[in-house]
Design a protein around this nucleic acid. Structure first.
Lengths: 79, 79
DNA sequence: TCTTTTCCCCCTCCAAACAGGGAAAAACAT
DNA sequence: ATGTTTTTCCCTGTTTGGAGGGGGAAAAGA
């Protein structure tokens, strides 16, 4: 993840046949947001990122040593 | 994900035996950040979230229909 | 019970994110 | 090559996140 985020978004946007501007408008964010995300900017609001990922049909999930233990305690967590 | 983020962070913090303040200081963010994240606030800076996840040893990864295709084009992506 | 720790939630101030405009540059067509 | 679309990257005003402080509630521990 981390630095890959830019590539992930770019890749999915291209595959979706969207321009930066189209993706921005569909996501309800400014056009610069998409540009900046695709260029590795990390100082971005989480909810803005999530809006974009939603349009691109990308889900975030987490991995950690405690994951199994967590899922046991929160059985209906979709992550 | 999404709304679960709060639970994930709380769960991992507790298991780590850290207080909100300790986690905040170790992560290099303000004490309110941890509190807000654990209370479901989505308007949070991505890099601040990542700092906290790093301390808690939580990795983010993504899931999408294009994932396999993406990993083929970016073989050394750790996500 | 009394004490200490942790959490909740208010406040203010400052820096920074963000939107939108615009124009040059690059990419992609025809 | 010429036109068209897309991307890059300025700039500006507005908005908001976020740090730090602090007080009181709540929980934990003695």
């Amino acid at each position: 993840m981390e630095t890959q985020l830019a590539n992930i978004i770019l890749f999915h946007r291209k595959r979706s046949g969207l321009t930066q501007l189209e993706l921005a408008e569909m996501s309800g964010v400014g056009k610069n947001m998409v540009y900046e995300l695709e260029n590795g900017k990390q100082s971005v609001q989480l909810d803005n990122l999530l809006r974009i990922l939603r349009v691109l049909n990308i889900e975030l999930t987490f991995k950690s040593p405690l994951r199994e233990s967590f899922l046991k305690e929160y059985p209906d967590a979709d992550c």
